[in-house]
């Protein structure tokens, strides 16, 4: 992948981490637990949106079942950590057997499992494009959800319960950072350019000798892997995983983030994941404070049920007036790998 200069992104991530941590300290108390929850959720959405962007935005495929991958990651990693916790207590002192290490391994295994599913779904994608592919991935997502609903071992409709709470701001930031680095390096490598060329013109890129099959499947596998990691983090944050969390609607929300941010722009996805998560919470707070009024004998209250209406209108407006999303194809400087000039 050539020479990669990490420092700038690493520094930015460290500054973000340190600043948020300091602000959330009890003594400072500028960011209370509520803000930390929003930030944690935003970070998980960053992974989901950036990885969906790899499939939809960079490779030019289309997935409507992204949360299906997240479900696989959540259930697999959740099952592993709950099983391991049931074993006799690991010996303290050996960090290899410590719970955090097991958690990290479990998250990665969950990601790999999701990647395998992505591999399975990636293959049919070779034959389909555009909206057919969209509806097909939607179908796959629904099938995953249906199956989870019917496996009693993982709780069926009760959900997978008792997952230990290992996701903290620290672990989530760490994983988010690693995934962004992974995606950024991939996109800006020759592999990434090959993926982009498929999006621009599949036939032409094939004629240029690019193995389109390989790159399309690769897009799906890596995208699914990242979604699986995000799902695992979410499950360990909420301490449960439930089939309904991974249906069509959550997938659509991630899709909205990708489109709002800009197809093909990692910066856009990161920005949109943060701003839309914060916007939803902001709207919630705002709507909570609208007083009720009377029409006839009925109390009418404009409440939080209108937040989703606004969300939907926002999506339509973005599509109508800024189809290319907030960032278009542009990337922030932080996410661009500096190339050493070769002579």
């Amino acid at each position: 992948m050539g020479t990669i200069k990490l420092p700038r992104l690493l520094i930015a991530a460290l500054i973000f981490y340190v600043v948020v941590t300091i602000l959330s300290l009890d003594q400072v108390h500028i960011l209370n637990g509520y803000f930390m929850v929003i930030i944690n959720r935003s970070l998980i959405f960053v992974i989901l949106a950036a990885s969906l962007n790899l499939i939809n935005g960079i490779t030019g495929q289309f997935s409507l079942g992204h949360m299906g991958f997240a479900a696989v990651g959540a259930y697999v990693s959740g099952t592993i950590t709950t099983l391991v916790l049931k074993l006799p207590a690991p010996q303290p002192g050996f960090w290899i057997t410590g719970p955090i290490f097991i958690f990290m391994i479990a998250i990665v295994i969950g990601g790999i499992a999701a990647g395998l599913v992505g591999f399975l779904i990636g293959f049919p994608s070779l034959r389909l494009k555009g909206d057919y592919l969209a509806i097909m991935t939607l179908g796959f997502g629904e099938i995953i959800r249906t199956i989870l609903n019917n496996i009693d071992y993982v709780g069926g409709p009760r959900g997978l319960l008792g997952i230990p709470k290992f996701s903290t701001f620290t672990t989530i930031t760490l994983f988010t950072f690693l995934i962004i680095v992974l995606l950024r390096n991939l996109v800006q490598s020759s592999h990434g350019r090959a993926m982009l060329s498929i999006r621009e013109n599949e036939l032409a890129s094939e004629l240029c000798g690019i193995d389109t099959t390989r790159y399309k499947v690769m897009g799906f596998v890596i995208g699914a892997f990242c979604a699986g990691v995000a799902g695992g983090l979410l499950a360990h944050l909420l301490q449960l995983a439930h089939p309904t969390q991974y249906g069509f609607l959550p997938s659509a929300l991630v899709l909205i983030m990708v489109y709002a941010g800009g197809m093909g722009s990692m910066t856009g996805s990161i920005f949109a994941a943060f701003s839309l998560t914060f916007l939803t919470e902001g709207l919630r707070v705002a709507f909570d404070n609208i007083p009720s009024f009377r029409i006839g004998t009925m109390d009418v209250r404009i409440g939080t049920e209108w937040v989703m209406v606004i969300y939907a209108i926002l999506l339509i407006l973005i599509m109508l007036f800024r189809t290319e999303g907030i960032m278009g194809m542009r990337e922030a400087k932080l996410l661009i790998i500096e190339e050493k000039k070769k002579k």
Binding site: G33, Y34, M36, V37, I38, R41, G159, L234, L237, L238, L240, H242, T244, Q245, P250, E281, R284, D288, G303, T304, E305, V307, M308
Partner: peptide, 19 residues
């Protein structure tokens, strides 16, 4: 009453409980 909508979603539920 400070009311919050959980949308029937556990993730949303965790957020609003914290809020």
């Amino acid at each position: 009453l400070a009311f919050a909508d959980d949308k029937g979603d556990p993730a949303e539920g965790a957020t609003v409980f914290t809020k």
